[in-house]
């Protein structure tokens, strides 16, 4: 589904990603771990198409199609979703209205009619139950005054609504207490299927106890320095990132 080949990218001449190779197939969950500043969030942003980052070399291919010239919204229409580490506030725009706009814009891009209101309401009801979201929450302004946990839960709610092909969860566990973490992880697990894939970006092994990955990759200085199965995450937890760093130097 996703094929990243020798990806180099940076901002204003500073290279952050330094030759990433990664292949993600439908039905798989990949975890990307690594110390602060290793380029995890940059990788997520580059896949999503954030213009601030310049790709200097390499390709990102989704379903055989090079994404180089696709704007962020076009990538979204193609099924890429990113859960933000720091979701922004949009005052005066309710969660419902925001989702309605997002869904209809994607449908428009695919040549479909707007989703009928009753169908939209049904979808909202279904997905809010899945994530144990109080419906009152949906008429509040997007992320305004939300707690850390509410923001993250709202991100996963949006993911559930948009049903992406590829979901990238950027540090979705940061700022979550254990109950919220469980709800969010359960939500993600319920959305897993044979036709979609998830990339979980995280610092800690904790989240991976709930969302069990098929593969774990360790990112260091903009490169994947080690790949393995879920056991690698446990090993990292035990030995810390220094072990990887040292190994990378050798």
């Amino acid at each position: 589904m996703l094929k990243i080949d020798n990806l180099h990218a940076g901002v204003e001449g500073n290279e952050i990603l330094n030759g990433i190779n990664l292949e993600v197939n439908a039905g798989e969950v990949h975890a990307i771990m690594g110390p602060n500043g290793s380029g995890k969030s940059t990788l997520a942003a580059v896949i999503a198409g954030k213009e601030e980052f310049e790709v200097t070399e390499g390709t990102v291919i989704l379903d055989g199609e090079d994404l180089e010239d696709s704007a962020p919204e076009e990538r979204a229409h193609k099924g890429i979703f990113m859960s933000f580490q720091y979701p922004v506030e949009i005052p005066g725009v309710t969660v419902t209205n925001f989702m309605r706009t997002a869904i209809n814009e994607s449908r428009k891009a695919r040549g479909l009619e707007e989703m009928p209101a009753n169908q939209m309401l049904k979808l909202i009801r279904e997905k809010s139950e899945l994530l144990e979201i109080d419906r009152k929450f949906l008429s509040r302004s997007l992320n305004e005054g939300f707690s850390g946990g509410e923001k993250k839960r709202n991100e996963i709610f949006q993911m559930a609504m948009l049903e992406p092909k590829l979901a990238i969860l950027d540090e979705t566990d940061s700022g979550l207490d254990i109950d919220a973490l469980r709800i969010v992880a359960n939500g993600v697990n319920k959305l897993r299927s044979e036709s979609n894939a998830v990339i979980v970006i995280t610092h800690y092994q904790r989240l991976l106890e709930y969302i069990v990955p098929d593969y774990v990759h360790v990112l260091h200085e903009g490169k994947i320095v080690k790949s393995g199965t879920k056991e690698l995450a446990l090993e990292l937890e035990e030995k810390g990132y220094d072990w990887i760093k040292n190994e990378a130097v050798v």
């Binding site: 954030k50 962020p72 979204a76 979703f81 922004v88 949009i90 997002a102």
Partner: peptide
């Protein structure tokens, strides 16, 4: 902010529409 625009873009909402959404929210 660019972050607000990118957030909307990432959800499939283009920049013009994103501005409209933000402005309408502001003026509600």
């Amino acid at each position: 902010g660019e972050d607000q625009i990118f957030y909307c873009n990432q959800r499939g909402i283009d920049t013009e529409k994103a501005i409209a959404l933000i402005v309408n929210g502001f003026s509600k």
